[in-house]
Design a protein around this nucleic acid. Structure first.
Length: 575
DNA sequence: GCCGTTTTCGGCCCGACTGTTTTCAGTCG
C-alpha cells in the first residue's frame, strides 16, 4: 500500500533530520504528515487524483510534491540524498529505548560504532561509561535497551493489552487510596495493536498508589518510579505506565493520556487561539493561569463548543471538524448488537452444540445467531459435505421449533475457490438463511485475481457477506492486497455486506477500511468467528473496530431484527 | 515544513523522569 510506504519514508526522513540536528519544527512536520497519511481511509492516490493532497492536515505544497514524486517514480530524490548523509547504524540506534539522536551521535563519533553488535560489545566492556555526560547507569540502560530490542518487543494485540489492563485495574481498584481509575492511551482508543498500556488513577496519596503498583505480582522490572508517573515491565515484557493525578484533574488527564497525540495537538492549538492552555491538570487561561475546567472530559469539549468525542474517534481524522459542526456520527455500541454473524459448531472445527451456542447467545442478550460452519473443500477444518450441511439445516429448523428467545439461522462460511466459484451449488445455497463467503486458499494470487474472486462471489445472489476479506493474521500473516474501491463498489451495487471479523488476530476489515465503507454506505456485519465459548466475548473488539471506523447502527446488520435481516437477504435474491 | 480571528512571517503542545549535574539536557509520550 502506498500510504504506509510514504509514511515510513517521511518518518525516516524525520529520523535523519533529527540526527542532523535540523529545525525541530521541520522534523515535527514530517512526523505529522506521516501520521496523517497512516490514518487515511483509502489509498493516497485518490487524493492525488482529486488534487486534494494539500487539504490534508500537515501536508503543504512541498510534501505534496514529494508524495506525487514517489507515486510517479517510486522514490523521493531528497530522501535518497538525506540517506547518504547518515550512517545506517545511527538510525538503528534510535530504535534503542532511551537512546535518542544526541546519544546516537555521541556513540558514533566518539566510539566509531558501526553496528549494534559493536555497541553491545563496547557496553559490555565498559567502554561507554566515561564519555561526556555518560556514566555507569547510562551504559547499563543501553545494554538493557539492546536486550529489549533483541526480544523484539513490538506491539501487542489488542486483546492481550485489554486483558492485562483489566487485571491491573482490578488489582489497583482494591486500594482505598484509588478514587478513579481508567485505562488510557491507544488501549482506550481500542487500536488493533498496542505498544504499551497506559493507566490513569486519581488519588490524594500518590506514593501509596505508586508503591503498590510497582509491587504488583506480575511486575518483572521497574523502569521508572516518580510521584506522578511510573513505568514497569510485566513478567511477560509488557510495558505499563501509571499516571496519578488529583481528582479535579481527572478529565484533563484522561483526555491527555488517551490521545491520540495528533488529536491532542489539535485541541491545544484551538485552546491557544482562545488564549487558553491545556495540560494534564486542566484548562487554564494563559493570562493569570486561572483554571477553568478539568474535572471531566465533557466539560473540556464543551468549552470548545463540541460534544463529547468518543475515544475511538480521537485520531485527528476529521472528528474535530465534525464535532464543531455538530455532525459526529452516533457510534454503534456493544448493547446494540442483536446477533453474532459468524459462529462454528462441533460439526466443523468448533466444539459447541447448537443448544450450547443458543444458551451463550441468550446470556449475551442476542436475539439470533448465524451458524456458519466451513464448506466441503476446507477439509482441515472439518468442512461439511452437502449432505452434512443439509442435515445441519434440518437440526437448526428443529431447534427453532422449540426455542422462543433465540433463533438460529442456517448459514455457512462457504469457500471462494481459486477461480472465484463457490464451494456449494446454488441449489444448496438457496436452502440457507444467510450465506457468508470467504477466501481460505490461494493467498499468493495477484491483487487483481484476488479482487476478482471476491467480486465474482459477491455477484452470486445468494452470497450475503464476505468474511475476513484481507486474510491477515496480525503479527503472523500480512494481508493480501485487494482493490477495496472495486470491492466496495460491487458490494454496494449487489447489496452484499462485508464482515468485521472480531477475532483479535484478524480484526478484518480494518478500522481504516471500515471508515471508507461507512463513507460509501456499505453494509457491515460483525462476526466473532467463535469456535469456543470464551470467543463470543471477542464481540467487544469487533465493535471497537466499527467505532474506530465511524460505523453507526444503520450501517451494521448486527443491529437488525431477524425479520429485517431476512428482508435484506430476500432483497438480494429477488434482484 | 506547515499555517493563518495574533500572522504570508514567525510562530509552532506541554510536562515528567532519569542521569548527570549542581541547574539541566536528553528522552519519552
Amino acid at each position: 500500500m502506498n500510504n504506509s510506504k510514504i509514511a515510513e519514508i517521511f518518518n525516516k526522513m524525520a529520523d535523519i533530520l533529527e540526527i542532523e540536528e535540523e529545525n525541530p519544527f521541520r522534523i515535527r512536520a514530517y512526523r505529522r504528515a506521516a501520521q496523517t497519511i497512516e490514518n487515511l481511509s483509502g489509498d493516497i492516490l485518490q487524493y492525488v487524483k482529486e488534487d486534494s493532497l494539500v487539504k490534508l492536515p500537515g501536508i503543504g505544497e512541498d510534501l505534496a510534491s514529494k508524495i506525487k514524486e514517489f507515486l510517479k517514480t517510486g522514490k523521493i530524490v531528497s530522501y535518497e540524498k538525506l540517506k547518504k548523509k547518515v550512517k545506517p547504524v545511527l538510525l538503528d540506534m534510535l530504535d534503542i529505548p532511551g537512546v535518542g539522536p544526541k546519544t546516537a551521535r555521541l556513540l558514533y563519533e566518539r566510539l566509531k560504532i558501526r553496528s549494534l553488535a559493536e555497541l553491545h560489545a563496547k557496553a559490555r566492556a565498559h567502554k561507554i561509561s566515561g564519555l561526556p555526560g555518560v556514566k555507569d547507569k547510562t551504559e547499563e540502560n543501553i545494554l538493557k535497551g539492546l536486550d529489549f530490542l533483541k526480544k523484539d518487543i513490538g506491539r501487542m494485540r489488542l486483546d492481550v493489552a485489554f486483558i492485562t489492563a483489566q487485571y491491573i485495574v482490578s488489582e489497583l481498584k482494591k486500594l482505598p487510596e484509588v478514587i478513579e481509575i481508567s485505562p488510557a492511551g491507544s488501549l482506550r482508543r481500542m487500536k488493533e495493536t498496542i505498544r504499551d498500556i497506559d493507566i490513569l488513577v486519581t488519588s490524594k496519596e500518590n506514593e501509596k498508589v505508586m508503591d503498590a503498583f510497582v509491587k504488583l505480582p506480575n511486575v518483572g522490572n521497574i523502569i521508572a518510579k516518580g510521584a506522578t508517573k511510573s513505568s514497569i515491565l510485566t513478567k511477560n515484557n509488557i510495558q505499563v505506565d501509571l499516571r496519578v493525578v488529583s481528582p479535579d484533574s481527572y478529565g484533563a488527564a484522561l483526555m491527555y493520556f488517551t490521545g491520540s497525540k495528533a488529536h491532542n495537538i489539535r485541541m491545544r492549538e484551538m485552546a491557544s487561539k482562545m488564549g487558553l492552555k491545556i495540560n494534564e491538570y486542566g484548562v487554564f487561561r494563559v493570562k493569570g493561569n486561572k483554571k477553568i475546567a478539568g474535572k471531566n472530559e465533557s466539560e473540556i469539549f464543551s468549552l470548545f463548543n463540541m460534544p463529547y468525542i468518543e475515544p475511538e474517534l480521537r485520531e485527528n481524522t476529521g472528528e474535530i471538524e465534525m464535532a464543531l459542526h455538530g455532525k459526529l456520527p452516533k457510534l454503534v455500541e456493544l448493547k446494540d448488537i442483536k446477533c453474532d454473524f459468524h459462529v462454528h459448531t462441533e460439526d466443523s472445527d468448533g466444539v459447541l452444540s447448537l443448544e450450547e451456542i443458543a444458551k451463550i447467545a441468550k446470556k449475551k442478550g442476542y436475539k439470533y445467531v448465524i451458524i456458519s460452519d466451513h464448506s466441503v473443500s476446507l477439509k482441515i477444518a472439518g468442512g461439511l459435505s452437502e449432505k452434512r450441511l443439509l442435515n445441519e439445516i434440518e437440526n437448526i429448523r428443529n431447534f427453532n421449533r422449540n426455542s422462543k428467545d433465540i433463533k438460529l439461522l442456517a448459514g455457512s462460511e462457504v469457500d471462494i475457490l481459486e477461480d472465484g466459484s463457490l464451494d456449494y451449488s446454488n441449489v444448496i445455497l438457496e436452502k440457507l438463511d444467510f450465506v457468508i463467503a470467504a477466501i481460505h486458499s490461494g493467498f499468493r494470487q495477484s491483487k487483481d485475481k484476488l479482487t476478482t474472486r471476491i467480486v465474482k462471489a459477491m455477484k452470486n445472489r445468494y452470497v450475503n457477506l464476505i468474511a475476513h476479506p484481507s486474510g491477515r493474521l496480525i503479527g503472523q500473516r500480512t494481508a493480501y492486497e485487494l482493490d477495496y474501491e472495486r470491492i466496495f463498489s460491487v458490494a454496494k451495487e449487489t447489496g452484499t455486506a462485508v464482515e468485521i471479523n472480531a477475532y483479535p488476530e484478524r480484526l478484518d476489515l480494518t478500522d481504516v477500511n471500515c471508515k471508507r465503507a461507512h463513507e460509501l454506505g456499505i453494509k457491515l456485519a460483525i462476526g466473532t468467528d467463535a469456535h469456543l465459548e470464551g470467543q463470543f466475548d471477542n464481540m467487544i473488539y469487533g465493535v471497537s473496530v466499527a467505532k474506530r471506523g465511524w460505523v453507526e447502527k444503520k450501517d451494521l446488520l448486527n443491529c437488525l431484527t431477524v425479520e429485517e435481516l431476512k428482508e435484506f437477504v430476500e432483497c438480494k435474491r429477488r434482484c
